[in-house]
């Protein structure tokens, strides 16, 4: 059985899992339908057992425009932008780490911090254009989103994807996802990355 009305059909997901590497697993976050509920943040916390204060996913709210006069029709916007790790092609965190604790896996492009090697200096957080790695104050090491590597290596989706209540967050191999987005969405929305592709080459795809 499978989900009625799934936006990423089972075949695309299966193809992503079966593809022989090197490949890039990543997320597609469709901002148009995100309702800003933060379920992804909480699911990630529950799955990865992070302490209060560390969240591998965070949702920021961006208000645009001003509304002051009720005699005028309001014209404002609010965007909800979910920010996991971008699992960059050229991770700034990896370049910045003085002890080589960060690796980018060849088989699927997932970027991981080795917390046994980490000395907690926080250079990675400083270097990351998204401020993603966070300090676990109790363990005194840096932590980050693993794209649920423990799940995707077993053919399961990341926790944040599974829980999204608005069905606006998807997982797959970047080429498969990009092809799907161009077919289904890109006629009227632009396909973007947060920050230019030319800096750290983020892999997470956003549509607006």
């Amino acid at each position: 059985m499978s989900e009625l009305g799934a936006f990423v059909p089972d075949e695309v997901l299966e193809a992503s899992f079966k593809k022989q590497g090197p490949k890039q697993y990543t997320l597609w976050v469709d901002l148009e339908y995100c309702v800003g509920c933060h379920a992804c943040t909480m699911a990630c916390k529950a799955e990865n057992n992070t302490p209060v204060g560390v969240d591998y996913n965070r949702v920021i709210e961006i208000e645009v425009g001003e509304f002051k006069d009720p005699k005028e029709k309001p014209d404002i916007r609010t965007y909800f932008v979910a920010m996991p790790c971008m699992h960059c092609g050229k991770p700034a965190c990896m370049a910045a780490c003085p002890v080589g604790a960060i690796t980018k896996r060849k088989e699927d492009g997932i970027v991981l911090i080795n917390k046994d090697k980490c000395i907690g200096c926080r250079y990675c957080a400083w270097a990351c254009p998204y401020g993603h790695p966070q300090f676990n104050a109790e363990a005194k090491v840096m932590e980050k989103c693993t794209l649920c590597v423990h799940r995707v290596t077993k053919g399961l989706k990341p926790a944040c994807v599974d829980t999204c209540i608005a069905k606006t967050r998807f997982f797959g191999e970047i080429d498969d996802l990009t092809k799907l987005i161009r077919e289904k969405r890109a006629e009227r929305v632009s396909l973007g990355f947060i920050g230019a592709k030319s800096t750290t080459d983020p892999s997470v795809v956003y549509t607006k």
Binding site: E47, T50, I113, E143, T153
Partner: peptide, 14 residues
């Protein structure tokens, strides 16, 4: 492999 790549310290996934 990923277990070695994240180490035993800090938060561990389910």
């Amino acid at each position: 492999e990923w277990k070695k790549q994240i180490g035993k310290s800090g938060s561990q996934p389910d």
